[in-house]
Design a protein around this nucleic acid. Sequence first.
RNA 1: GACUCGGUAGCUCAGCAGGUAGAGCACAUCCCUUUUAAGGAUGGGGUCCUGAGUUCGAUCCUCAGCCGAGUCACCA
Length: 512
Amino acid sequence: MFYICINFKYMNQNFSEQEQIRRQALEELIALNIDPYPSDTYEINANTEEIHKHFPQDNTLYQDISIAGRLMNKRIMGSASFAELQDSKGRIQLYFNRDEICPGEDKLMYNTVFKKLLDIGDIIGAKGFVFTTRMGETTIHVKEFTILCKSLRPLPIVKKKDGKTYDAFTDPEQRYRQRYVDLIVNPHTREIFKKRAAVIRNIRNFLEELGCLEVETPVLQPIYGGAAAKPFKTYHNKLDTTLYLRIANELYLKRLIVGGYDGVFEFGKDFRNEGMSRFHNPEFTQMEMYVAYKDYYWMMDIFEEMIEKVVIELNDSTIIKTGDNTIDFKRPWKRFTMYEVIKHFTGEDISEMNESELIKLAKKLGVETDRYMGKGKIIDEIFSDKCEPHLVQPTIIMDYPIEMSPLAKKHRSKTGLVERFEVICSGKEICNAFSELNDPVDQRKRFEEQLELGRRGDPEAMVIDEDFIKAIEFGMPPTTGLGLGIDRFAMIITDSKSIQDVIFFPQMRPDK
RNA sequence: GACUCGGUAGCUCAGCAGGUAGAGCACAUCCCUUUUAAGGAUGGGGUCCUGAGUUCGAUCCUCAGCCGAGUCACCA
C-alpha cells in the first residue's frame, strides 16, 4: 500500500503536498543534527563563470575548489548522481558518488541527505575538483557538501534543449510580482538589470570626469515643480503640512547652481500620479544634470558624447537592435528645429500661426485638442502625434514654443521660442534639456502664465515656487540643464518591450 | 479610462452540445555507479479567479466583479 508520512503539523495550513514534503525534510534535517540555516561564512574559492572560462583548456586547475549556489536540478542514478548548481554567474554540473561522499559504512549523507532531503531550490556549498564527464561536460566531482539554506517552496523548472526552452516561467504578472523567482529561473532577467546598473555606472563616471558633483535633493516637497505632471500627495503629521512626492529634481538642483557649484547631477526617483502603461511606471528614475556657464548647444554636444560612449561601453558598438529598429548612436546626430520637423512631417509651416490657426490645423491633422490647451501645448500635441513616432534614429529636436517651457530661457534670436531640445529615439523622448531661465522677472511671469493655464483647467500646469524665484533673484549663472529618463533608455539598451522589464518591482495592483 | 484577449496542478498548457477534469515537467515510492530539457516502473496532487443567474446539474453559458497582457488615449 502506498503511504506517505506527512507530519500533522503541516496538514491544516493549506500547504501544497510539495510544501509539506519540504517542511518535513526540514524537520528530518534538524533531527539529524544538520542545521538547515547555518550562520557561518562559507568560504568560496571559485565560481561557475571562471571555471567554464578556464577549465577544459587547463585541466590542472580547480582541483580543490569550494563553491556555493542554488541547486537547480537533480538526476539520481542510484549510487552516482548528477545535479546542477547555479551561482550568481551561471551554472555548473555536480557529480555525486555515494562512496566518495560517504567513504565509511555510514551512507546517510548520500542516501538520505542528498537523495531525499535535498530539493531543487536549496542552497548548498560543495567542495571537490573539476573534471570532464564522458559526455564532455565540465563538472564538479563533489567530495563534500553542506546545506546552507533549505528552500520550502518548489521552483518552476525551466529546461532547455537545442536552444528551445520548455516550461519557461513567462507569465508577466508572476514574473513582476515574484521577481525573486524570475531572477532565479530566468538568467536573461539578471542580465537586463546588470545592464541597467552599467548604464547608471557609466553615466555617473562620465559626469564625475566632467567635474560634476553628485547630489541628493528632497523627494518630499511642499511645492512640487520642474515638470508638467500630476503629483502624489502625502502628509507630514508633525509639521501638519501637505507634502508632495517630487515630479522632477529641477528646481532644487538649480538652487544648488545658485549656491555656487559649477555642475551638479542627481539620479533620482520621480513620482507621477498618472496613467500606467508599458512606457509609464508611477515611480521612475531620472538623471538630471545642470552645468553653469554653458548653454544648450554645449549640452547637445556633451549629451551625444556621453550616450555614444555609454552605448559603446555596454555594447561594443554604437549600433543597437531594439524591437524592430536598428539604432545607431554614432555622433553626430541629426538636429532639427521643432518647426522644421513639423513642416517635414505635415507639410505645414506653423512658425507664424496664432492659437486659433493652430487649433484649426490640429483638427485638420486629426490631432485632438482640449479647451485649456495653450498654443505651446497644441504644437506639442501635433509634434507628439505626427512627428515623434517617425523619429527612430537619435535626433535632436530644438527650439520649442515658449508656452510649453516655463523654465527655459528665451531663445537668443527667435521670438516666441526657447532654447530647449529633446532627443527622440525609437519614437520616444529620452531626454529634455534647456538653457535654463535665470531671469527672475521673466521666471515670475512664466509661472503666472502657468497659473492662468491652471485656471483654464490644465491639471498639469505648474504652481509658483516663491522660494525658487527668491533663489534665482540672488542670481544664477547662465546654466544648461538636462533630464534623462533612465528607464526608457534602459529599455532601448536592453531591447525591452515594457518598462516593467527594466524595473525590479514595477507598480502593480495589490495582489488579492 | 476605452476596446481585445486571458485566468484550469508548484510550472507550461490541453479540455468541455453544459454531466464536478487531463498531459509533460516538478513531487512521492521502488530499481539503476557517468546522466544531458527527457533512465525505468508505479503513484499522489486541483475552491477549473470570485460572486450571482440560467439549469436537474456550470470549469464550460449569461451578468457583475477582481487580476493580468496587448492596443489606443495622457504624462517620461
